[in-house]
Write a protein that binds this DNA or RNA. Structure first.
Lengths: 122, 122
DNA sequence: CGGAATCCGACAGGATACTG
DNA sequence: CAGTATCCTGTCGGATTCCG
């Protein structure tokens, strides 16, 4: 999952490749979904909602999402510092896609798991 | 992207984590989408349609999708051997999600790219 | 033709320590 | 609090070779 690439090398216009190179990593979709839970969220709240993300990966993921115009980052010049993250309109337009994926998973995951079991046995 | 895990260790019931652990890798979505192009597809045709996939990764990806009940594999006892792959009904029910993702990408990728440019400069 | 097996490099991502 | 900066490891996936 080469998130670094701005465009896919061989197929710069393939939507699947380009979208996967952005949100197909381990954390992006999870961060977007978590952010969709409230209008604005601070760094450490975000981290508490995704307990097993390291702060490095949270930072890296947020920066990448920000570069893609999916997340807005607002820094308040206070002590202690406060940084608030929120979804951009562009990200909000992506939410239905994510939701439909989640809905699909909710309906099919149990069956998938039992299929896995059978394929392990047989 | 730990595709090996049957369930996510910390959140076995989180749909996002489980779905991502399956189709969030480099090739799965691309293979599913390619297969959706025709009712049945042979191994080497599939490979020709995804020129930069190695035959190892095509095999691995197809096996994983088969285990999840997303791809059906039919072997014909001929010489030379023939193996045909097709989407299961479960996979077909996932196609709308994939399509909406692609559609979103089609509408937003250009803007994302230009945002990237600006964030590189500024 | 459609794989399986092996070797191997690159890099995503975790752990830890430090800072404004 | 919200990060950076290193270091280090696991694994993903490419290249190659061999097989029914």
């Amino acid at each position: 999952m080469a998130k670094i690439e701005i465009k896919d090398a061989l197929f710069p216009d393939c939507p699947i490749r380009n979208i996967l190179s952005r949100i197909g990593d381990k954390w992006s979709l999870l961060v977007l979904y978590t952010l969709s839970g409230s209008s604005v969220m601070r760094f450490n709240v975000l981290q508490k909602n995704i307990p097993d993300i390291s702060q490095k990966m949270l930072t890296v993921t947020l920066r990448a999402l920000e570069e893609d115009g999916l997340v807005k980052r607002v820094i308040y010049a206070e002590v202690p510092p406060r940084v608030e993250y929120s979804l951009t309109d562009r990200a909000k337009s992506l939410l239905p896609c994510i939701d439909s994926l989640i809905a699909w998973a909710g309906e099919n995951m149990a069956a998938i798991l039992s299929d896995r079991m059978r394929s392990k046995v047989g």
